[in-house]
Design a binder for these strands. Structure first.
Lengths: 186, 186
DNA sequence: GCGAAGATACCGACCAGCCGGTATGTTTCC
DNA sequence: GGAAACATACCGGCTGGTCGGTATCTTCGC
């Protein structure tokens, strides 16, 4: 009877769309408005439909978080693979992923990180990922000045999150270049 | 009849206590648990009592935010007054206030900033404050390397927020010294 | 100095709405 | 036909907020 019941069933597509819509809502309507109702509606599904794919709201956010984290992880791996220099390799990849001058519009992982700030479980998951990654690259990225650059990258990301709309006040490309330069061995 | 009706009326005290309790709840129970009920209870007042002082929850959070921002503003002014060097004076004060190595325990303004990230209105208020402050000190703190240090300070603050519990992994005092050094004219 | 009168501070009960979640029905795929 | 993929209906709980009332403070005429 309903449209959803008439069209071909593609559970994987629906599931992905739910995640995408959840991320979208998180980005431009805030965490407070991330309700199962809103997500389901945006994805063209009823609340019951959503709950079929994700047993609870918690599961939904966890899946969303895991997906974003996986993307970031892959992005960093790719950037590192293309970097011939050893020293500071991870830091450069981290900075590039964080600043994202190549991407238009706000970084979608901003949404992820807002959630991270709120939910203690997700916050710890992020911390674990970061620590593990740092441990993995301790031979090339443990220097204090690299740590500082990474801090700065987080700060830039934070500003991005704050700004949201309006033009970036400073030249991001130049900033990125400067930060990358700081990671080169003296 | 009730206790609150029997005791001496001290509206200013109650109002301040409401703000303090709100901040406390925000810090150790998260934004999601910051309800008017919880705040009122913690302050030893009924929900109606709270709504008497703050017409809405929004007004409460705004007042809380304004108070914290005022504190930060004063703290920075004090740090700047004690700094003889002109170049990077604001940046040093900002870094000192952000890292707060002299303070024990987590920075209470962390709570403020989490709210800032969430609420668009508060987020803009913060942005306005920061921009105004930067404009005010444009003669001494506009250099790119100072901007970078400020970014790093934000990054450190973010890490503080993430960590929440457990020991700080790195020496904050040393880090602070390094960052301050970076603000000195070459 | 003092008592009436109004303003202020607060309580306690209540409400509409929304939220996450469940239980159950109906359709579609294999 | 049976399981998966949804829709529909509904519930209990909690939320922010309103409202009428009461106790306390302050003001001011006298």
């Amino acid at each position: 009877m309903s449209l959803a019941n008439q069209r071909k069933k593609e559970p994987d597509v629906v599931r992905q769309k739910l995640l995408d819509c959840a991320a979208q809502i998180l980005v431009d309507r805030g965490l407070a408005n991330l309700t199962v109702q809103a997500v389901a509606e945006a994805a063209g599904v009823t609340k019951g439909g959503l709950l079929h794919h994700f047993a609870s709201k918690q599961k939904l956010t966890e899946a969303l978080f895991a997906e974003q984290l996986r993307n970031l992880d892959g992005e960093i791996d790719a950037a590192m693979a293309a970097d011939p220099v050893g020293h500071g390799r991870f830091t450069r990849a981290y900075v590039r992923s964080t600043l994202r001058v190549d991407h238009t519009g706000p970084c979608p992982c901003a949404a992820l990180s807002v959630s991270t700030l709120i939910d203690p479980a997700l916050r710890q998951a992020w911390g674990d990922w970061y620590r593990a990654r740092l441990q993995r690259h301790r031979d090339t990225d443990a220097a204090p000045e690299l740590q500082l650059v990474r801090y700065a990258a987080d700060g830039v990301w934070l500003e991005d999150l704050m700004a949201q709309d309006g033009e970036p006040p400073i030249d991001r490309q130049t900033l990125l270049t400067q930060m990358i330069d700081l990671t080169r061995k003296r």
